[in-house]
Design a protein around this nucleic acid. Structure first.
Lengths: 104, 104
DNA sequence: GCCAAATATGTCACTATCGACATAATCGTC
DNA sequence: GACGATTATGTCGATAGTGACATATTTGGC
């Protein structure tokens, strides 16, 4: 796995204290995490492009700024459901969501 | 919305007692639900193609037969995360998962 | 039409995820 | 370098999703 990708995962708080722990993630888990990060990244892009603050988006979603921050950080306790819901709220189509996911 | 799609949603137990209730779902929620159903359908296809019973797949996932049944029914209390994890477990690629999602 | 295997449905404790809040860190602008 | 606005981080009680189990229903071979 590329170092840049691993760095991204570590930044998001996934258990990667040591290489061994990191490699302890099953391939399917890693893919899932990568999907989350990809969605997170696209979400931030869409939000900023719309000129919205995290607080603005949070309001639209009936959520809170801190949770939006966590979404965009791709933190471990953010569900795919929430990320997808947020993407759709910014006007993304199913195809666009799919594109983000395919990138993983 | 097409009747067939609506029927599929109703079958899966989404609140659709009346047309009004049904239409009460926001477009973004409907899309999310449709994604779930699409993944559910593909999952069943992949499982059967592999010649696995729901119990077999459940074991591989560390889950239970009843939950697999619910996944494949696209029931409301099944998360996207779980569906995607299951898809990946059957050997689906990120691209294949994305394709299912794009269909919504 | 029986039987066994597979699938569906309902329920329940346990846990992960949630919105909310407080607070810290970062960034522009002056 | 102070300020206001934005974003990041940590925590908590509430709730939605989970595996497990019991049981009902469906399916297919005989």
């Amino acid at each position: 796995m590329k170092t840049t990708k691993r760095r991204a995962l570590e930044r998001a708080g996934w258990r990667t204290g040591s290489a061994d722990e990191f490699l302890g993630l099953k391939a399917e888990e890693t893919t899932l995490v990568t999907m989350r990060l990809s969605l997170a990244e696209k979400l931030r892009g869409r939000r900023t492009k719309l000129g919205l603050s995290q607080t603005d988006l949070a309001t639209r979603l009936g959520s809170s700024q801190s949770r939006v921050a966590k979404m965009e950080a791709g933190e471990a306790d953010v569900s795919l459901d929430l990320l997808v819901r947020a993407m759709l709220n910014t006007g993304a189509s199913a195809r666009e969501v799919a594109h983000a996911i395919a990138a993983a």
